[in-house]
Design a protein around this nucleic acid. Structure first.
Lengths: 253, 253
DNA sequence: CGTCCTATTGAAATTCTTCAACACTCGTGG
DNA sequence: CCACGAGTGTTGAAGAATTTCAATAGGACG
């Protein structure tokens, strides 16, 4: 449990150098922590707080100043925007071990909420800024996440602008599959998925209404592309077939 | 000396220090060049080539490796994605002095084309990479542009997913207005705009068909929100009114 | 057992698209 | 100078996809 024989990023580092708080963190070798030295990890950990959020719990309101940033340890976070008359659009989903926050802009332009139960490891703004000054690598890592987010946003723009309801829902399920279980999702084998979003949220993500989302679910079910185990869990008998069905280009990084 | 924020960062620099190629460049103090020292500007300029592209001329194909990056000196560039069966969605527009390219990913996920006549100042990949190694400021600047692009993409996701055709077209015109003439676009005064896109492209940007775009133009015209001077130029009598409009849909015929 | 929340289903209404026709502009060449 | 054609934009009417409205079903929990 304490030794990691698998391709560690810093094989010269003893576990004793790593802060206690971080030792049990599954995300430690990924996300932004993956590139920090033990000292940096220590410096960071002195200011971190771990939270657990319930589904639908708000993290940051739109326009609010973010005084703390976080790493997602587990769970799924949704970023959404609202029109003045209350129409909602989810503009991004973030999974562990994503970094949460916009370090160099002073106010959030999205509402940030937990979609599922979420565990966060959060720290104050100034701590991150100091770390960034000390190591350019960190900013590079932030850049890469941002770049992936933009790529995903562009994929969803294509879906929102040009794809049918059925393609969008199929694409969404495939997207979730590859995010929840990246390895498994390659193979043409059945896969059980816990959906991080309820129907309303899926609708808000795909620019549809709950009713149409529901209808597409039953279409996919009748076509044998998915099996509805219960509201929140589905089985995908053949992931590739589902992907082919709704070809979203998901570029990995 | 390393303030990353604002305005003529180096007003103490004599013109004689600045490479000849750069002296006449309107974008020199903005974009990524704005944060480079004269030496760096010189190093960069040794490898730059200025191009002029005609409208619809391709810069990078989707999936192609980008071996050169560019700064946009003038004109508008469109980034688009295609589905396998040929449906097109424009996922971003870039204006001078934007930086063009994805420095840390090896293949473009978008097709990049000139929308208008475009003047570029381009340089090989490795030159940029060396510059980035030398100055973290540069990566910070790239980060900021990326962050802005993501913010815009999210705004358009809201439009594509949740706004009516009329709101989208109105919003697009307002967007172009603020991009073409940032200062003027604040005031409630008439503004003449040269549209960088033809109707087909506007449709591909807004997830609509040419016909619906056209219909929304005439609605806006009949409502007195715009005046059609010719196909490519419109007058906006009151920019604020148009902005207010693109958030709230008023429908009459 | 009733209530709340979530999801599904059906029928009517609406928005946008599709298809088809026409108008305008701008070169080129007769 | 006019005719011609290509490219681009507009308009109308029919059709399709999605939304809206309304009703029903199921599960979790006190």
């Amino acid at each position: 449990m304490t030794t990691i024989t698998e391709t560690p990023i810093r094989q010269d580092v003893h576990n004793s150098d790593v802060p206690v708080l971080c030792r049990s963190c599954e995300a430690r070798h990924r996300g932004i922590c993956g590139i920090l030295s033990p000292d940096q990890l220590l410096a960071l950990s002195r200011h971190t707080i771990k939270h657990t959020l319930n589904p639908e719990q708000s993290i940051v309101a739109e326009g609010e100043a973010e005084q703390r940033f976080s790493n997602i340890m587990s769970g799924v976070v949704k970023l959404s925007k609202l029109t003045s008359d209350g129409r909602r659009q989810i503009v991004g989903l973030q999974f562990a071990p994503d970094f949460l926050g916009r370090p160099f802009s002073d106010h959030s332009n999205c509402e940030v909420e937990a979609a599922t139960e979420v565990r966060l490891c959060s720290f104050p703004r100034h701590v991150l800024q100091n770390l960034v000054k000390a190591s350019p690598n960190l900013e590079h890592r932030l850049y890469q996440q941002l770049s992936r987010e933009l790529g995903e946003a562009q994929d969803w723009m294509l879906a929102l602008g040009r794809k049918s309801a059925l393609e969008r829902v199929g694409g969404f399920l495939h997207f979730v599959a590859t995010r929840i279980d990246p390895e498994h999702a390659q193979a043409s084998a059945p896969l059980l998925i816990d959906l991080p979003l309820r129907r309303t949220d899926i609708a808000d993500f795909l620019g549809l209404t709950v009713e149409t989302v529901s209808r597409q679910f039953t279409k996919l079910r009748k076509a044998g592309l998915i099996v509805l185990v219960n509201n929140r869990t589905i089985e995908i008998p053949d992931v590739d077939r589902l992907e082919h069905f709704s070809n979203l280009s998901l570029d990995e990084d």
